[in-house]
């Protein structure tokens, strides 16, 4: 198989992979970090499918399906874990999690992040609460 057949696919897939890797290293938000890894996996899946097409067999497609299935399983674990971590610190910043370290070293102080403007006003959704019978006005029978 000459590389030319898959060159464009390979370029895109390695760009996706590299963006994912850069995102994993650079971002501090737990969810964004996980999504970066997902991006890397999708890059891999793309190259697998491209190779499968170039070689004319189904190994690549099968592999890509496995990659997607495993990524889904990992996402399930990731969200559960992130939720628990969030409940402890009320933040998704990874810098909150650096108590375990080499004895005698001090944790690096994170650069302050500009908090996004979040309105503190609570807008509750306007749906009737489930399970409670809506209170109605006095029932009238229209006989007209």
């Amino acid at each position: 198989m000459p590389v030319e057949f898959v060159r464009n696919y390979l370029i895109i897939s390695s760009v996706l992979f590299s963006i994912g890797a850069a995102g994993f290293v650079a971002r501090r938000n737990l969810i964004t970090m996980f999504l970066s890894v997902e991006l890397m996996l999708q890059g891999v899946a793309l190259s697998l499918v491209a190779f499968g097409r170039a070689w004319g067999n189904y190994h690549g497609e099968v592999f890509a399906l496995f990659v997607i299935a495993v990524a889904a399983a990992e996402a399930a674990i990731a969200l559960a874990l992130v939720l628990v971590l969030y409940r402890h610190r009320h933040s998704l910043d990874v810098f909150w999690w650096q108590q375990l370290r080499e004895p005698g070293t001090t944790p690096p102080v994170p650069e302050p992040v500009e908090e996004a403007e979040v309105s503190t006003e609570v807008h509750w959704p306007k749906l009737p609460p489930a399970g409670i019978e809506p209170v109605r006005e006095k029932e009238t029978i229209d006989v007209g």
């Binding site: 198989m1 994912g20 737990l30 890397m40 190259s47 190779f51 690549g60 592999f63 990659v67």
Partner: peptide
């Protein structure tokens, strides 16, 4: 958390290697 995040990163690296080996 530390094990999970680094492990998924390592899986991605292994997978790209596997994809290239297949290629």
């Amino acid at each position: 958390a530390k094990y999970f995040y680094l492990s998924v990163l390592a899986s991605a690296l292994f997978l790209f290697g596997a994809a290239l080996a297949y290629g």
